[in-house]
Amino acid sequence: MRILWFAWFRTRVGAAEEAVTLPAEIRDVRGLVDWLRTRSPGHAAALADDAAIRVAVNQTYVKFDHPVTDGDEVALFPPVTGG
């Protein structure tokens, strides 16, 4: 699975992109976020607040109950501030 990080999530994680092998028991975004938090203190800091997490699977916004599979590209980022 390809994980993309943007804005201050990227700076806390310390990478713009990661390739991970999704554990078989993880089925949805909620499970993915919980698992990513365990990867490093930076990951935990980026994902500390559920309310500040936006998720796009294959470039489309999804909610935490959305299913994920190892072939997905999952982007995680804070609330957007363009315009």
Partner: peptide, 22 residues
């Protein structure tokens, strides 16, 4: 656009760099 388009602003202020909050 302001609530959905994935853009983020990093400001350089007199107090240093900071990410703009939504």
């Amino acid at each position: 656009l302001k609530t959905r388009a994935p853009f983020w602003k990093l400001e350089a202020t007199d107090g240093g760099e900071r990410w703009v909050e939504a």
